[in-house]
């Protein structure tokens, strides 16, 4: 459904990737693995429709994103969610953070009304907020301030914030690289739940074990492009590309 075709993107003096093609279907987890600095974040931002490629096409359900009208592009962009390595929560209570995506999708009149209601303490967050917090196991923290959370909890809230508006595609950029094993397990579990809801999940990670644990398919990003994409087991057991094999076996050191 979300499809990159022969996409190229350069940054500064050199290309980040060239001629890259990748498809993300609903209800699957795709892991993007590769060494640091190879362009995983750029790839995810391209998939998030927030970065226009220099060349090639990006399409969501067959609609070309970057030739579409501005209003249509916004509608397409709003079907995608992204979580960064850092939680980047807003300075507000947890529930208001999680509700953000829902809130900005409402008409201005409704938003204003909800704002007034929250000023007098009458605002009740939508059910989706509680559901999303349930997925990451933080329902009881809904009324706490975001800055009172631990790093792991903040990242889980950040995940819930991207999940709450039920995106079709969810992009996770190194979501657990700063987290302890327990919080990592919660996030990985939440990825599986998102997949079960029919969301296409893309996770960029430098942790190959995590890719093995969570992904249905793996894309290996080396130097200036994807060297290989395939089912997780095959990529790890029997990679067909020589450089992929060297990277996975640890021979290719960056």
């Amino acid at each position: 459904m979300l499809r990159l075709r022969n996409v190229s993107r350069s940054y500064g003096d050199g290309p980040v990737f060239r001629d890259l093609s990748l498809t993300v279907d609903s209800g699957e987890v795709v892991a993007v693995i590769g060494p640091s600095g190879v362009g995983k974040t750029t790839l995810l931002r391209t998939l998030a429709l927030s970065l226009e490629p220099d060349d090639g096409a990006v399409a969501l359900d067959g609609t070309d994103v970057w030739t579409a009208e501005e209003s249509e592009r916004l509608a397409l962009r709003r079907r995608v969610g992204m979580v960064f390595q850092e939680a980047s929560l807003f300075d507000a209570p947890v529930a208001r953070n999680v509700e953000y995506g829902l809130r900005i999708r409402r008409p201005w009149a409704d938003r204003l009304q909800a704002q007034l209601r929250s000023l007098v303490g009458l605002h009740e967050p939508a059910d989706a907020v509680g559901d999303a917090l349930d997925v990451v196991g933080l329902s009881e923290k809904a009324t706490q301030r975001a800055d009172s959370l631990s790093g792991g909890e903040a990242q889980r809230v950040s995940f819930a914030r991207a999940l709450a508006y039920d995106p079709d595609v969810l992009l996770l950029d190194e979501p657990t690289s700063d987290l302890d094993p327990r919080n990592t397990a919660v996030i990985e579990d939440a990825m599986a739940k998102a997949r079960d809801r029919g969301i296409g999940v893309v996770v960029a990670t430098h942790d190959m074990h995590q890719a093995e644990r969570v992904a249905d398919r793996v894309a290996v990003l080396l130097d200036d492009g994807v060297t290989e994409v395939g089912p997780t087991e095959r990529i790890f057991e029997d990679p067909s590309d020589e450089r992929t094999r060297k990277f996975i076996s640890g021979e290719l050191v960056y």
Partner: peptide, 9 residues
């Protein structure tokens, strides 16, 4: 960035 990728104009 967060506000933008969550669908913000």
């Amino acid at each position: 960035d967060a506000a933008r990728v969550l669908g913000g104009t």
